[in-house]
Amino acid sequence: MSPEIPHITAPEDEGLTIGTSPGDGRREGIIKARLVGVVLPILVFAIAIGLWELIVRVNGIEPFILPAPSLVISTLIKDWGTLSLSLLVTLRTMAIALLLATLGGVGIAVIFAQSRLIERSLYPFAVILQVTPIVAIAPLLLVYLDSGTAILVCAFIVAFFPILSNTTLGLASTDPNLRDLFKLYGAGRWRELVLLRAPSALPYFLGGVRIAGGLALIGAVVAEIAAGSAGHGSGLAYRIVESGYRLNIPRMFAALLLISLTGIFIYAILALVSHLLLRRWHESALDR
C-alpha cells in the first residue's frame, strides 16, 4: 500500500563506468613516454653544464671572467656561512611581502567586489603602482624609509598587483545563474561572498599568487641592489653587488644560483598548494 515514488531516471546512465585499465603493452608505452619526459630534460641540462665546464677548462678561462660550474659549487660550500645568512634575509623579505600582498590584495578585491564605484575610484592607484618600474621607485623609497623596510615595501608593491587584479576578476566571474539562485533563496551579501564568490575566485586568486611569488623575489632583489648598503640585514642581491666590487666572480655566481633556486622553490610550493586545492574540481588541476 506504500505510495509509488516517482523516480526521474534516464535509461543510459545508471552508474558511473569505471575506465578499463589499458592493456599491458599500452601501459608500458605510457611509462616509457613518461620516463623519456623526465630523463630528457635532465640530460640536456647536464650536457649544457658539462659543456660550460669543458669550455672553461679547455680555454683556461680565468675564474674572474667566467668560473667553471665546479668552482661555483665549491665557492657555494666554502662561503655557505655568509651566503646562507643572506639567503635567509631574502627569503624572509619575500615571505613577509607575499603574505602582506595576499592579505592586502584579497582584502581590497573584496572591497572592490562590493561596489563598482569604489573599484573605479581606487583601481587607478593600483595601476599606477604596477606600471611604474620598481627600479625607479626603489631609490625614492630609500629616501623615506630605512633600507630594510624599503626593500620589503618594494617586494610588496610588485607582488600586490597580480593578486589584486586576479582576485578582483575572479570575484566578478561567478556564474550569473548561480548568483540568481542565491538571490532566489534570499542569501545576503556575506553568504554569497563566502559560499559562491570566494570558491569561484579561488583558481584566479591562486594564479595571481603564483605570479606574485616570483615577482616578490624580483622586487626584493631590485630593492636590495638599489639599497646597496651593508649591514646585518643584507640579502643575496647585496652579496652579488659586493662580490662584483671585489671581483669575486665565483661568489657572484654562487649567490645568483641561490636566487634562481629560491625562485624555483617558491614557484614549486605555490604550484603544489594550488594543485592540492583545486584538484577535485577545477579543469586546470584535473589529471589528463
Binding site: 505510495p3 509509488e4 515514488i5 516517482p6 523516480h7 526521474i8 531516471t9 534516464a10 535509461p11 543510459e12
Partner: peptide, 16 residues
C-alpha cells in the same frame, strides 16, 4: 529518449 523518460517522471513527481 531521455527526455521522454524525464517527462513521465516529472508528471508523476508533480502529482506526488
Amino acid at each position: 529518449i531521455t527526455r521522454f523518460k524525464l517527462n513521465d517522471d516529472l508528471m508523476r513527481l508533480k502529482q506526488e
